[in-house]
């Protein structure tokens, strides 16, 4: 007969593998002096359109690179290429989110020290990406005016982990019957910590504030590097 069971304390985080790699990535970004930004949204919210314009315009001011995740195709990477910065696709196959080790592998081919800002465009999905730390310095969630004002209430975890929320496609707000005040109230209720931007990558509405925000992140990194 076996001895009676002994209780053994474990205390092991079940996401330890990802979290350990995220710590490595964060240190890697810090050492390279680059701000890493994790961009989350539903499919079709306009992440890639926002990045196209950001690379073309903000890319004149600061050196910007992109890692872009999708289940299939490198269409987004091709849309973003040729705008001056490195663009590396990650094709996840069936995985619905990016994990820290995928980002590390993608970054191996990028001269991070030559960049000010690295945008990691996550797989379009507001559920799982929220649970995976990539080692980013800032997390930004994009919500388009065509998605409905209550999305922050339906997917609170993504919004609760965001430093900033971008309301995109303001040019379509009237056509979609978008209630801007209700959307802003919902974002604030679920994510009171988040800085909120409203913009249109098509018309350019609100992009100045967005670029100033990105510039502030880069300046903040530079100051902390000087201090450290």
């Amino acid at each position: 007969m076996p001895a009676s069971p002994t209780a053994v304390l474990v205390g092991e985080n079940l996401k330890a593998r990802n979290d350990r790699q995220a710590v490595v990535n964060r240190e890697y970004f810090r050492a390279a002096g680059v701000v890493a930004l994790n961009l989350l949204s539903s499919p079709g919210s306009g992440k890639t359109a926002l990045l196209e314009r950001t690379l073309s315009e903000f890319g004149q001011r600061r050196r910007v690179g992109v890692v872009v995740g999708d289940l299939q195709t490198d269409n987004d990477a091709r849309r973003l290429a040729g705008r001056g910065g490195p663009v590396v696709p990650i094709t996840t196959g069936t995985v619905c989110h990016l994990e820290a080790d995928m980002v590390a592998r993608a970054c191996a081919g990028i001269d991070l020290a030559g960049l000010d800002l690295l945008v990691i465009e996550n797989v379009g999905n507001l559920v799982c990406p929220a649970s995976f730390d990539l080692g980013e310095g800032a997390r930004v969630v994009v919500l388009s005016t065509t998605e409905g004002e209550d999305k922050p209430l339906k997917y609170p975890r993504a919004f609760k982990t965001a430093q900033a929320v971008v309301v995109s496609k303001t040019d379509l707000a009237a056509a979609a019957g978008f209630d801007r005040d209700a959307a802003l109230a919902n974002i604030h209720a679920v994510a009171p910590q988040a800085t909120v931007f409203a913009l249109s990558a098509r018309t350019g509405d609100g992009l100045g504030r967005w670029y100033d925000y990105l510039d502030g992140l880069v300046e903040g990194r530079r100051r902390s590097a000087d201090a450290g």
Partner: peptide
């Protein structure tokens, strides 16, 4: 409040073995 002190846990706390 955005200051969450508890609720992100995801861990194996203890095992009983023999």
């Amino acid at each position: 409040s955005a200051d969450v002190r508890q609720g992100h846990e995801l861990e194996l706390v203890e095992v009983e073995v023999s």
